[in-house]
Nucleic acid binder design. Structure first.
Length: 480
RNA sequence: GGCGACAUAGCCAAGUGGUAAGGCAGAGGACUGCAAAUCCUUUAUCCCCGGUUCAAAUCCGGGUGUCGCCUCCA
């Protein structure tokens, strides 16, 4: 497997720290609001990466943190007159509602900053004792000049950064780019006791402390959004390698940004979309499909038309599955060109793996999925009328689609492990289904009388209720 | 000002040296009572200029444009 490493700016062969195992840490959200589309991309992207490692037979250890102590949370809590930790807890619950909807698997551990103060404080003490950090009043800063490789991730030098400094420099710092490891508490803020007085951790130290705790030194993959490269991940590297004297992470991966109507998503532009707002308008599998239809490192522009187009594309995949399920009833142990079809399935599987092996090229992988759909459809197109559908062929097709789905995570499965096609669609239930069957039968009567007015009327009426009726040589079929 | 990314058909999007995957939309045909679904066929020389090469969307130089980071941000 090849993956693009932000540090080297090249694709590299993936070699895990421990054979057969992958350790992944992905920066999670600051929980002061419902998650937005920009949060959803890394969620879905790294979930897919994790799933592919599992598909490849790796044991995966996946950690995603919550930043539940932060200025933004404190500000928000102050506005709402609520306790910051409670506010954060609430949005952590909301986070899971959205991420579950997007079919994102839970991490093995979701560590919170508020529950890792001892680890954080210990790490800061370690940095101070090694001469990499210094205390000023109640604050502790990392001494950037003490770490020679500073800038290796983002590809900048200290000189570059000083030249471009746009922030007022705190005169107490040794170097303008020194960053806070510990912040002295201000009046009314949540605070924890520390050797430097009451305060709270700086933003970057949490990820270092928590990733080391759960994954150890030199773990495999650290991921996050492109914007975290600098300063967040740069600082993580500096403080961690300064503290441990060992390499921190083997591969750094960063997903590209989402834009809305070609503009950066931002509150001031009023184009800030929450995941649940989008899920109110589009099925979650469409959203996930859309997020994976572009390579994870490329920018991705969002608008309603693009999501609608994605939804129509996905419908093609679902139709194919419907055709398979429908044909299973009339399949035979063998028939037609089963061998030829099975070798085609093998080819598609190899293509899928090749695509994913190449830096998780989900866009290409989805292309392969569509090729597969075309293969299956055209097989059925020929085999169904001649009653030559092979159950072996169908089983192989379903197996492959399920395997691909286990990686892309587009469709949920029911209790029996079958792909759910009607998820999120209202109007199920025994009574409704029974009525529908009745109506369809009555329409068939009308059709046999060539009463086209009645039959078309029924079809149009059902369409308005969100039920599509299709007449086939094998009889009518309906779908929600 | 510093650092970096990208520019492929109407739209979305793969493709890093050998004459452009796939999806949406469109066109023609098959099937259908009509549709739908499905099948078959069809729609691009890859921002511009110059260079390297037998050969470039793919490498190099220049230009234009778009975007991101440098401050909280996925």
């Amino acid at each position: 497997m090849q993956l693009y490493n932000t540090v080297t700016r090249k694709k590299e062969e993936f070699v895990p720290r421990d054979p057969g195992e992958v350790s992944i840490y992905v920066c999670g959200p600051t929980t002061y609001n419902y998650i937005h589309l920009g949060n959803a991309r890394p969620l879905v992207v790294f979930d897919t990466i994790r799933r592919y490692f599992a598909y490849r037979g790796y044991r995966v250890k996946y950690i995603q943190n919550f930043t539940d102590i932060d200025d933004k949370i404190i500000n928000r809590a102050t506005e709402e007159g609520e306790d910051p930790i409670n506010l954060a807890r609430k949005y952590i619950e909301e986070f899971f509602i959205d991420s579950d909807a997007l079919n994102v698997m839970r991490a093995d551990v979701h560590p919170k900053v508020s529950e890792h103060l001892p680890e954080i404080i210990e790490m800061i003490e370690n940095l101070i004792s090694r001469g990499h950090a210094y205390q000023v009043d109640g604050d502790v800063y990392f001494d950037i000049s003490s770490y020679r490789d500073y800038g290796k991730l983002s590809g900048r030098t200290l000189d570059d950064m000083q030249a471009g400094a746009r922030v007022d420099v705190d005169q107490r710092k040794h170097h303008p780019m020194d960053f806070a490891l510990w912040k002295a508490a201000k009046e009314g803020e949540p605070a924890w006791e520390s050797p430097w007085g009451a305060g709270r951790p700086g933003w970057h130290i949490e990820c270092s402390a928590m990733s080391l705790k759960y994954l150890g030194n030199n773990f495999d993959i650290h991921g996050g959004g492109h914007d975290l490269i600098f300063p967040h991940h740069e600082n993580e590297i500096a403080q961690t390698e300064a503290a441990t004297g060992q390499p921190f992470v083997r591969y750094w991966m960063h997903n590209g940004f989402i834009t809305i109507n070609q503009e950066k998503m931002s509150k001031s532009l009023g184009n800030f979309f929450l995941v649940r707002e989008i899920l109110a308008k589009f099925p979650s599998e469409t959203v996930r499909f859309f997020l994976l239809s572009t390579h994870y490192r490329s920018p991705l522009d969002f608008d309603d038309e693009k999501l609608e187009a994605a939804g129509k594309g996905l419908e093609r995949v679902k139709n194919c599955l419907r055709l398979i399920y429908e044909s299973e009833k009339n399949s035979f142990a063998d028939g037609g060109d089963t061998a030829g079809f099975l070798s085609l399935l093998d080819l598609r599987r190899r293509e899928f793996e090749t695509a994913m092996d190449d830096d998780f090229n989900t866009a290409l992988a989805i292309g392969v999925l569509f090729e597969l759909v075309g293969d299956i459809n055209s097989y059925l197109h020929k085999a169904v009328p001649d009653s030559l559908v092979s159950s072996t062929a169908l089983a192989g097709a379903v197996h492959l689609i399920k395997d691909i789905n286990s990686v892309l995570g587009l469709f949920s499965l029911d209790e029996g492990g079958n792909i759910l096609l009607e998820k999120n669609r209202p109007g199920g239930g025994e009574l409704a289904d029974g009525l529908l069957e009745l109506i369809v039968r009555m329409r068939q009567d009308a059709r046999s009388r060539k009463d086209w007015a009645t039959s078309d009327n029924i079809r149009d009426g059902l369409k308005e209720l969100g039920i599509t009726l299709e007449d086939t040589p094998q009889g009518p079929r309906w779908k929600r």
